[in-house]
């Protein structure tokens, strides 16, 4: 009887898990479906299927420009974030720095800040910088990249410190015993062994930046919108297969990049 109850509990558990997973994936399923509709109005059941909306999405200037801008900002913010975050993580794990845990928490702070608050704060900050220095930062690419770097840094620190924590330092000592200098040791020993953490940090940093909406909303200038904002503005006006096709392209790109990354770093280990 206990075996039956255990099996029943297991079945209920799996059913509940499947329901939740389905709930998470359902909106993506509908977007995918809509992208292939023949008619423009999203009414069910569809009258037929067509691939014409992918051409329409590729011809839509705001989607294409938004995609290019998001890509530029994402890559730049990720690189700067790694440049600042990896050395900081090394220092935090390896060296007794004053207030170490406090500094660690501080660097993770942008992650728990509401995006809307980050957006308004950065907006008024850029206004003040522009008034004081008369450098046009409002709505500029540099301003956007700087703001996105702020939300990339916590991911880098979090994932790289985690991968450094499990690192055996005696390997480095061995390298130095064999005559390697600190720089050689870092490039040939330390860096390769924390590569999974760095790859994961780059992936998470990039997609955080690429998908950021709440903060970017305040920082984009006229004629300069990121892809998530272009999609949001389009959806506020109407929903049709064109926006679904643009979204599907995005879903496929992110999905493929995750599966490729997963071949090098097991995502289930780092998330």
């Amino acid at each position: 009887m206990s075996a039956i109850r255990l099996r029943a509990a297991r079945f209920a558990l799996n059913a509940a898990a499947a329901f939740s997973l389905g709930f998470i994936l359902l909106p993506l399923f509908f977007v995918t479906w809509l992208a292939f509709f023949r008619q423009e109005i999203p009414s069910f059941p569809p009258e037929g299927y067509s691939l014409q909306w992918f051409a329409a999405a590729a011809a839509n200037k705001s989607f294409v420009d938004g995609f290019i801008l998001s890509l530029q900002v994402g890559i730049a913010a990720t690189l700067i974030g790694l440049l600042l975050g990896v050395p900081a993580s090394l220092a935090l794990v390896r060296h007794r720095i004053p207030l170490g845990p406090g500094v660690n928490t501080f660097l993770l702070l942008p992650l728990v800040m509401p995006g809307i608050v980050l957006g308004t704060a950065t907006y008024v900050f850029q206004i003040e910088v522009e008034i004081t220095t008369s450098v046009p930062v409002m709505g500029s690419l540099v301003g956007l990249i700087a703001a996105h770097t702020l939300v990339v840094i916590p991911w880098v620190v979090r994932l790289v410190t985690a991968s450094l924590a499990g690192f055996d330092r005696s390997i480095e000592e061995a390298a130095q015993n064999l005559g390697a200098g600190p720089v050689t040791t870092f490039w040939r020993v330390t860096l390769p062994s924390i590569r999974p953490g760095i790859v994961a940090a780059a992936l998470f940093g990039f997609v955080t930046s690429f998908g950021n909406l709440e903060m970017s909303l305040f920082l984009v200038g006229p004629g300069r919108t990121t892809l998530p904002i272009a999609i949001l503005q389009y959806l506020e006006w109407k929903i049709d297969p064109t926006v679904a096709a643009a979204s599907l392209i995005q879903i496929v790109l992110i999905g493929v990049s995750m599966i490729v990354t997963d071949r090098y770093v097991k995502l289930s280990r780092v998330v």
Partner: peptide
Amino acid sequence: NLLVIAVVLPLFVGNAVRAAGWMTAFGSRG
């Protein structure tokens, strides 16, 4: 790993896109 990706993927797709999915489902002729 695929299951984990299935959970993580929507996270990276953006809120507007996922709202679009629900808009497709919930409309008066959805």
